[in-house]
């Protein structure tokens, strides 16, 4: 990979403004059925902490983006987004429709130490891909549909229970949906508050990572 320094003068502001314009211009798309009125509504206790209304990255603005692009607009998914990108999994899968159970940054921080995570990201890519597959479900599945089915099989071959208690929908034993039903092109994204899969917890919970 090579990243030559830009030698040609560019106006970054104009480029960014154009990108922003593109991202905030939501329109309907045959493959991503947006709800009536063209707005996407997401549900869950974390949604208020994410871009809302007309802010850049609001749910409606993401509905027509490819899923890898949509993930970059969710400020609490930086770990998951980078992991998917690093693994190359989405490109390799060629799924027509896919559902992502996306653990938040806090969920990853609770699960893995920095050392464990860096090892997964820099060396153990097979293990990383298996971990990520534990968060992917074939088809674009709304949360209500998954809850009604009661189970869901992830791409690592594991069948999870999906249980709904009150307003809370839980995958497996610990992962609650905290902001569900984001749309992207050919994809549904449900943010969850715990990492799925069999890898052991290595975070020590102190939060005292030395500088």
């Amino acid at each position: 990979m090579s990243y030559p320094r830009t030698s040609r003068p560019r106006r970054a502001g104009a480029i960014l403004a154009a990108a922003l314009l593109l991202a905030t211009t939501a329109c309907t798309d045959q493959s991503a059925p947006a709800p009536a009125g063209g707005t996407v509504s997401v549900t869950g206790p974390l949604c208020a902490a994410l871009p809302t209304g007309t802010e850049p990255g609001n749910p409606t603005a993401l509905a027509d983006l490819p899923v890898d692009q949509a993930l970059t607009w969710m400020p609490t998914l930086t770990t998951f987004e980078a992991a998917l990108r690093t693994s190359g999994l989405l490109t390799d899968l060629h799924q027509d429709g896919i559902t992502l159970l996306a653990p938040t940054d806090d969920a990853f921080a609770k699960k893995f130490s920095d050392d464990t995570w860096d090892t997964l990201m820099t060396r153990d890519h097979d293990k990383l891909r298996t971990l990520l597959k534990a968060h992917l479900i074939a088809g674009t599945r709304p949360l209500d549909e998954l809850a009604a089915a009661g189970t869901a099989t992830t791409l690592d071959g594991v069948t999870l229970t999906v249980t709904r208690t009150g307003d809370t929908t839980r995958f497996g034993d610990t992962a609650d949906a905290v902001c569900a039903d984001y749309l992207a092109t050919g994809a549904r994204i449900h943010l969850v508050n715990a990492v799925l899969g069999p890898l052991p917890t290595t975070a020590d919970g102190s939060g005292h990572r030395a500088h």
């Binding site: 990243y3 320094r5 830009t6 030698s7 040609r8 003068p9 560019r10 970054a12 502001g13 480029i15 960014l16 403004a17 990108a19 922003l20 871009p51 802010e55 850049p56 990255g57 970059t72 607009w73 969710m74 400020p75 930086t78």
Partner: peptide, 18 residues
């Protein structure tokens, strides 16, 4: 530009820097 939803990427950093 993104109201802090996104951090500045590597390529955007190079363009801004240039």
């Amino acid at each position: 530009t993104t109201h802090a939803a996104q951090y500045t990427s590597d390529t955007e950093e190079y363009a801004y820097t240039a």
